[in-house]
Write a protein that binds this DNA or RNA. Structure first.
Lengths: 228, 228
DNA sequence: CCGATTTGTCACATAACCGTCGCAGGCAGC
DNA sequence: GCTGCCTGCGACGGTTATGTGACAAATCGG
């Protein structure tokens, strides 16, 4: 089953961002807006991971953290703490109370997602790797590196995300619209043909490392990564 | 039984497009033109999936979403939300209220159908596979690939759709008119004999992968795929 | 604020595909 | 076997989708 991630965050802007990104990475997601609700929702269905805001109305994040660790039915529940920048000592107290990781706001979504994966992988090994290999291409999302037959490949941010997405679903054909939605983000509007250009750039970069074109064009449908 | 899909959409152009395509994929389809009607129709017969427009007269899409999730007899009713491009925060609120997926208008029909399948497959596994095998021919709609006895077969878009349609109904004979309607679409006007040419091309492509002709000509009636 | 990198769009060339035609051959009924 | 329809298929002109170099705007990192 999909891992269940509970977001405990009162700022709607933040929780929505998290919600959106976690859904995109195919998790089950719940949102709690204050401390009480968080505790209730944990009781209802034990999450596989708790994203916990430091400052939470009614019952603070650190208090929740403590209660979970000492009190409840699941003292090993993984927790990633979200703190505002500059609360350094708080941060440490956060780890002290037993959070598995902490992230300062504002945070990079990519980085947070990587940490989420990292924590979840501890619980469920082989869940969503930080490294994927398809054929002779390997991508390392943490180190942000791509190699082909050992050679390093430099990619721009967009090409990187594009390849990343392809490698998560090898063989599958994506329309330009789908790619725009997921790789670019659903909130940007760019021409569909832009995808072509970036696929072209990705191709050229991959070609430079030798071997033949690993991206398949499916006329009138989109692009796909060859799956061997 | 066929899955029942309810369309809640007030723009006639959109709802008819959906209706047409869903029928083509062999679903039972209902159409509601505003929010009230939608709620009524849900009560009458529980759909397997609700395609819900964001902006709906009388009772808005989001309100319906909320009521279904919280109130009714079937809080797990799968919902795909339709939103206009640019309503980004709305979109996220859509997910927040519990839609299973969302699609922005204007949308690609192919993509929407894929999502419909994806959502329905969650409910009824093995419903409409992304892969079909008939005899020694296999078609993979997600990867957009056709193989025969392991060999890859390259088909143009039209031949692909044609074979896809045949494979959904092996053995059945289709007239040229039926094929034009479904494979080409009811809105294009081309000569009936065009079908012959494409069937010919499909045949040639399949022949190249060995084996004998899997398409049967029924004189003065049409064509059919042999079902062994 | 500057240089370097990246990005989105355009224009153009090319390749892939489409629909139609024409004709050769096949099929059924007589 | 003959006749009148039907079908298979190669050829062809027109259309559409895709690949790619160029470029200006945007962004990043100092």
């Amino acid at each position: 089953m999909k891992p269940y991630v509970l977001i405990a965050e009162d700022e709607k802007a933040v929780s929505e961002l998290l919600l959106y990104n976690l859904r995109k990475e195919d998790y089950d997601v719940g949102v709690a807006m204050d401390g009480e609700e968080t505790l209730m929702m944990i009781d209802e269905r034990t999450p596989d991971l708790l994203l916990l805001d430091w400052m939470l109305p009614k019952v603070s994040g650190i208090e929740i953290c403590r209660r979970v660790r000492t009190g409840g039915a699941n003292p090993n529940l993984p927790i990633i703490m979200l703190t505002a920048r500059g609360e350094e000592s708080d941060r440490i107290r956060g780890l002290d109370t037993g959070a598995d990781d902490y992230v300062t706001k504002p945070f990079s979504t990519t980085e947070l997602m990587a940490r989420v994966r990292a924590v979840l992988r501890r619980i469920r090994p082989g869940l969503k790797e930080d490294r994927i290999t398809v054929g002779d291409i390997e991508i390392d999302r943490v180190a942000h590196r791509v190699t082909r037959q050992g050679d390093d490949i430099h990619l721009g941010p967009t090409e990187f995300r594009l390849l990343d997405y392809f490698m998560q679903h090898p063989g599958r054909v994506f329309s330009r619209e789908q790619l725009l939605d997921t790789v670019w983000g659903s909130d940007v509007y760019v021409e569909a043909r832009t995808v072509d250009v970036h696929v072209g750039r990705l191709r050229k970069a991959l070609r430079n490392a030798g071997g033949d074109d690993p991206i398949r064009t499916v006329r009138s449908a989109g692009y796909a990564l060859r799956e061997d």
